[in-house]
Design a protein around this nucleic acid. Structure first.
Lengths: 160, 160
DNA sequence: TCGAATAGTTGAGACTGTCAATCATTGATA
DNA sequence: TATCAATGATTGACAGTCTCAACTATTCGA
């Protein structure tokens, strides 16, 4: 019998809060599910992008995942240490190193993907299939449009 | 210019990933906006709940925000140190201390709420008003249904 | 009354977000 | 072509967050 706070909680109208809260729930479920293959959700996302592309530069990974380049280094180190990815020098630009999945990496990815999907199922239990589709499309727009922050740069500035 | 990874990125179909990514975007925008009043989004959420309820136990706060009780302690400490909330002993249970807003706290909350709404506006720029409403409803269901998972889910319904 | 459960607190360890600085390489240009 | 700015990767640092375990004070039930 958790005592439900009486007042009207404005946070429940705040999409920013709701995003953070539901993300927290999903991450927790996913980490729980991925524990069986010894991965965390961050490493899983890197492995996924590596497998889907067959090899992706750390810079592109950083852009795509919205993480600082230094975080990519640590994640790649760990995945490499466990033999799931390799750093392959890009012949066309010797500065970049392509994060490339190994066979073991692809195998682990297949397993972890199933686990991640089961976790997602749990997080989104309150929604119907149609609603999940709608949610996915809306979030995809937020992510793909917002993440490319071109030099449009209005006068407001100060961002980032 | 930005080299778009070639392969089909399955992460963009993963609602869990999309939630984490869009939450990250929203939190960044909100923290930027709240910087002008010297708050971070976590402190803002505590202050908001305190103001909306007029006084809420740390335990209820912990449940509502999905945070560990020890995190509430730190957040309340900081808000209290800055004179925005007080810890008022609950006469009906001397174990609990109600996190209660001060006048200054209510004032700062009003300002920060406007800032947070502006940030939300920025994060959700790709969506129409209708779509934002849909997103809010879907996320609210995920949060309010999923967050209560006591062993006995006897207390269903109620939520509107 | 006694023991289990609860509210709050403290402390620790791992993970995350953000910055600044460094090195090698690339690309543009005088 | 020599040079310099920009870029990709890396390291290190520091604050913030998540998750536990342990502890005290208080409440509640048998």
């Amino acid at each position: 019998m958790s005592k439900r706070p009486a007042g009207r909680l404005e946070l429940l109208d705040d999409v920013g809060y709701l995003l953070a809260r539901s993300s927290g729930i999903a991450v927790r479920h996913t980490n729980d599910a991925l524990a069986e293959v010894g991965l965390r959700v961050r490493q899983y996302s890197v492995l996924s992008a590596a497998c889907d592309t067959g090899g992706i530069s750390q810079r592109a990974l950083s852009d795509f995942l919205g993480l600082d380049p230094s975080q990519i280094v640590a994640l790649a180190d760990e995945l490499q240490r466990r033999g799931l990815v390799e750093r392959v020098p890009d012949p066309r630009d010797r500065r970049t190193r392509l994060i490339t999945p190994t066979d073991a990496g692809r195998q682990v990815y297949a397993q972890s993907k199933a686990a991640a999907e089961a976790a997602s199922e749990r997080s989104l239990a309150p929604l119907t299939d149609d609603e999940r589709g709608i949610l996915r499309e809306l979030l995809r727009r937020v992510v793909t449009v917002t993440s490319r922050e071109p030099a449009v740069a209005s006068e407001a500035s100060s961002a980032r």
